[in-house]
Deep mutational scan, measured.
Amino acid sequence: CKVCGDVASGFHYGVHACEGCKGFFRRSIQQNIQYKKCLKNENCSIMRMNRNRCQQCRFKKCLSVGMSR
């Protein structure tokens, strides 16, 4: 997965992504979610083991690796 490094389940929203990141991105855009501000200057490292800790940084990384509708 380009977002968290887990095993990708396919090509989702323009990038190779796992089911977790695919679902997270889908919910984020469909529900237009505004995530809580990052407590670490929006510089969190997103990996499989910690991908749920900072939703703002995870969504930012989804966009930075090329995920789009």
Rank of each mutant, 00 (worst) to 15 (best):
E19W: 09
F59V: 08
M67Y: 05
R27A: 09
N43A: 13
C57S: 01
C38M: 03
K61A: 08
S28P: 04
V15R: 01
N43Y: 01
R51A: 10
K61L: 07
L39C: 13
Y13D: 09
N43I: 05
C38T: 02
R26V: 08
C54I: 00
R53T: 13
S68C: 11
S68P: 02
M47D: 15
R53K: 13
K61F: 05
C62L: 01
N43S: 09
C44Y: 10
N52P: 03
S28W: 03
R48Y: 13
S68F: 05
C18K: 01
C54W: 00
G20C: 11
I33P: 04
S64K: 15
N41Q: 09
Q56D: 15
S28A: 02
E19L: 01
S64I: 00
L63T: 06
F24M: 04
N52L: 10
C62T: 00
S64V: 11
V15P: 04
I33L: 11
M49F: 14
D6T: 07
M47Y: 06
C62E: 07
R48P: 15
V7G: 07
M49S: 13
K61E: 07
Q30E: 13
I33C: 05
M67V: 02
R58E: 07
N43H: 08
M67Q: 13
D6W: 00
V3W: 00
L39I: 14
S28R: 00
N32C: 05
C38H: 06
K37N: 15
E42G: 14
C1G: 00
R69G: 14
V7Y: 10
K37I: 09
N41M: 05
M49R: 09
K2T: 10
C18I: 08
Q31V: 04
I33W: 04
C38W: 06
Q55Y: 11
R27Y: 02
E19I: 02
N52D: 14
C18H: 03
Q55W: 04
C54L: 03
I29T: 09
C4P: 01
S68G: 11
R48N: 14
V65G: 03
R58Q: 12
M47C: 07
R53P: 14
C4L: 00
Q31F: 13
E42H: 09
K61M: 02
D6Q: 06
K60M: 10
N52R: 02
L39K: 11
Q31A: 06
A17C: 13
F59A: 05
Q31L: 10
F24E: 04
V7W: 10
R69K: 15
Q56T: 12
V15W: 02
C4R: 00
A17P: 00
H12S: 09
N43T: 10
